[in-house]
Amino acid sequence: MPRIICVAGARPNFMKVKPVMDALEARGAEVVLVHTGQHYDAAMNDVFFRDLGLRPPDRHLGTGSGTHAEQTARVMTAFEPVVGELAPAAVVVVGDVTSTLACALVAAKAGVPVGHVEAGLRSRDWSMPEEVNRVVTDRLSDLLFAPSPDAVGNLRAEGYHDDQIHLAGNVMIDTLYANLERALASDALHRHGLTDGGYALATLHRPANVDDTGMLSGLLRALGEVARRLTVVLPVHPRTAVRLEQVGLPGGIRLVPPAGYLDFIALQASARLVLTDSGGVQEETTALGVPCLTLRDSTERPITLTDGTNVLVGRDPDRIVATAARVLADPPLKRSPALWDGHAGARIADALLAHLAAPVRPRPTDARGVLTVALQ
């Protein structure tokens, strides 16, 4: 059976790579887990590995922080000799972080087939580094594992071949369902003095929201208004903590330490409302049936708007407060997108192994994907 490298670089990657690894290993493949170290805080990483039952990485590249260019270069420099040494049959990358792009680029230059999990997601907001990462990673990949029909539509519109595209479903939801019972048994609510349905949960971490003190002040003001109706719980992301000291915190917002995976799922599941700028939280709240307001001007996960419980509310404080009041009074019905069923990892493993077992075919050479997206 083939040797396959699975790459994780940041905490959102851990939840996405675990179902793929499990499914590949269940089918007899040799899986090498490479952790690039893009997120390098040992305490925060360790709790996610423990919560998910994810085995320690086979290789830890320890690349650390830096500018986007510095991180990309460090990951590429560290990953290239690993690919040369292990000679994998394929490299699987997940999501849209810097490590995803860097490792896909190394593998593609080495002539190793690349599989991209969460392919085809598009916000069409080129100010987001993640959007650049998504588009370029897809262009480099041989296999494109899309989580939803809209992602398939994006890939087809950009000129990708049908035999590259696989509607696999959402691996984040695989991990959510596999751990939901344990998460609901967590004592997170008790530890924070919360009751089921008695609070709103908020997360803020995107640079566009927290690096601009004026923008952050406005968002916090909106959260403060929501807190007049019910307590707002805000796990403090390291990026945000520094900014909070600069702008101050309205009353009614309760800061809590960063949560591990199980505790955070527990906090989401029992919240009456979630306000977030996270892509993954948009998906998890949809699966959990919890109303979600996305504090961004665009989303790469529109299926959570049409088939889920998410509302794209933007970043205007007055609009956020008004929409929160409306949703609290009339919550959306729970809806479940197709193939968000806990079996995405299995579909990905089957498609990847079938591809590796098939006769070698030339890589597509057209560049329509990049040209089409660039013009949108």
Rank of each mutant, 00 (worst) to 15 (best):
I4L: 14
C6H: 03
A8N: 09
K18D: 06
V32L: 15
H35R: 03
G37S: 04
G37C: 01
G37K: 04
Q38W: 03
Q38S: 04
Y40P: 00
A42F: 04
F48N: 08
R50D: 15
D51E: 12
R55N: 02
D58F: 00
R59W: 03
G62E: 14
S65W: 02
E70P: 01
T72E: 01
R74V: 04
A78N: 02
A78G: 02
F79T: 10
P81L: 01
A90V: 05
V94D: 07
V94M: 09
D96V: 09
T98M: 12
T100Q: 04
A107H: 06
G111I: 02
V112D: 00
G120L: 11
G120R: 11
L121T: 13
R122W: 13
M128Y: 05
E131K: 08
R134G: 09
D138N: 14
R139W: 11
S141T: 09
L144W: 10
P149R: 14
D150L: 11
V152P: 06
L155W: 08
H161W: 05
D162I: 06
D163A: 12
M172L: 15
M172I: 14
M172E: 07
I173W: 01
R182H: 09
A188F: 07
A188W: 06
G193A: 09
T195A: 15
R206P: 02
R206C: 03
L219Y: 02
L219T: 02
E225F: 05
E225T: 03
A227W: 11
A227F: 12
L230Q: 15
V233D: 05
L234E: 05
P235L: 13
H237W: 13
P238I: 10
R239K: 07
R243P: 00
L244T: 12
Q246Y: 00
V247E: 06
G248I: 09
P250I: 09
G251E: 15
R254N: 01
A266S: 15
A269G: 07
R272M: 06
L273P: 06
V274Y: 07
T286D: 05
E300H: 05
G308P: 01
N310D: 13
V313A: 14
V321C: 10
A322L: 09
A322N: 06
T323N: 00
A324M: 04
R326D: 15
S336M: 14
L339F: 13
W340I: 11
G345T: 12
D350R: 07
L353A: 00
A354C: 02
L356W: 00
R361F: 03
P362H: 10
R368D: 14
